[in-house]
Simulated assay, not measured.
Amino acid sequence: MDDPISRRYIESDYLEHNPEWDMEDSPWKAGKVAAMLKRFAIEPKTICEVGCGAGGVLGAMKGDFPKADFTGYDIAPDAEKFWGELRDSGVELNVGDFFTLNSRNYDVILLLDVLEHVADPHQFLVKLRPYADHVVIHFPLDLSALSVLRETPLLHVRRKVGHIQFFTKGLALELLEECGLEVIDWQYTDAAFSAPQRGLKTKLFGLLRRLVYILNKDIGARLLGGETLMVLAKPEC
């Protein structure tokens, strides 16, 4: 994996820019995932997170699915610094490429804030499809009319957290369909109002967003950004 995109994670570039590895968001994301699975009465026995980072989501989900076996993969060696207690609790965590190391099928695979970091998300999803009965994907919807006009927000997430793919809701759902994944459910997460790591500008735009969302939430997300999308999908038969 000696390409420039992967190198920023294999080396220490990502950790230097994100010393907490976004752990503050983990319980919030875990709650959204658990609610979506339970809404469709999915009680997985095996859950794997590809791109698990510090492992906070897996740790938080153990309370919702106490009988499940949890596994995580991340290509970043620095992520392992956060895994001590999680490994002690029985979560299997691996440093390396999922497709190289893994040989199992899982009831649920989590891709939370992963696809925006991948050079070829189509190839990635097609390769992943045989390993999962269900997939839960979290997309940051960086692409909006406002972000394109300003451009600075897109450059910021590209440089700070390594986003190289940018999505709207429509583009995200189209990607899954193109890769042979049937969308069972999708929901906006209301990240602009409820996510722990909201910036000052996001908070200031809150009132305007609420007003636009009353008229049309899709249009509001495409105009103003600040939203994310949680999707439950399964491989097409």
Score class of each variant (00 low, 15 high):
Asn94Arg: 00
Pro4Arg: 09
Asp69Lys: 15
Thr228His: 05
Gly31Cys: 01
His17Leu: 15
Leu207Ser: 14
Met61Ile: 14
Asn105Met: 12
Ala41Gln: 13
Asp22Trp: 11
Gln187Thr: 12
Ala76His: 09
Ala145Met: 13
Ile5Asn: 05
Asn216His: 11
Arg159Met: 09
Gly56Thr: 14
Thr202Trp: 01
Leu207Glu: 08
Asp78Ile: 07
Leu93Thr: 00
Ile164Cys: 06
His138Leu: 09
Leu15Arg: 14
Gly63Glu: 15
Lys81Cys: 12
Gly180Asp: 13
Asp185His: 14
Lys32Glu: 02
Pro27Tyr: 12
Ile10Gln: 11
Glu20Gly: 13
Leu37Cys: 06
Ser6Tyr: 08
Leu176Pro: 00
Ser103Ala: 12
Val50Glu: 03
Gly55Asp: 12
Gly199Ser: 07
Leu207Val: 08
Glu116Gly: 05
Phe193Ile: 05
Val118Pro: 02
Leu200Asn: 13
Thr152Glu: 08
Cys48Glu: 00
Lys67Arg: 14
Asn94Met: 00
Asp185Pro: 10
Pro196Gly: 08
Arg104His: 09
Cys179Ser: 13
Lys67Ser: 14
Pro153Glu: 04
Met23Cys: 14
Lys203Gln: 01
Glu49Phe: 02
Arg158Asn: 13
Val114Asp: 02
Glu43Gln: 15
Phe124Cys: 07
Leu224Gly: 07
Arg129Met: 07
Leu143Arg: 06
Ala119Gln: 13
Val33Asn: 03
Glu85Phe: 08
Lys38Ser: 15
Lys127Glu: 07
Trp28Ile: 04
Thr46Tyr: 05
Glu20Ala: 15
Asp3Glu: 09
Ala79Trp: 00
Val148Gly: 09
His163Trp: 04
Gly55Ser: 13
Pro196Ala: 05
Thr152Asp: 10
Val33Tyr: 02
Ala35Asn: 12
Ser26Val: 09
Phe166Gly: 04
Gly225Lys: 06
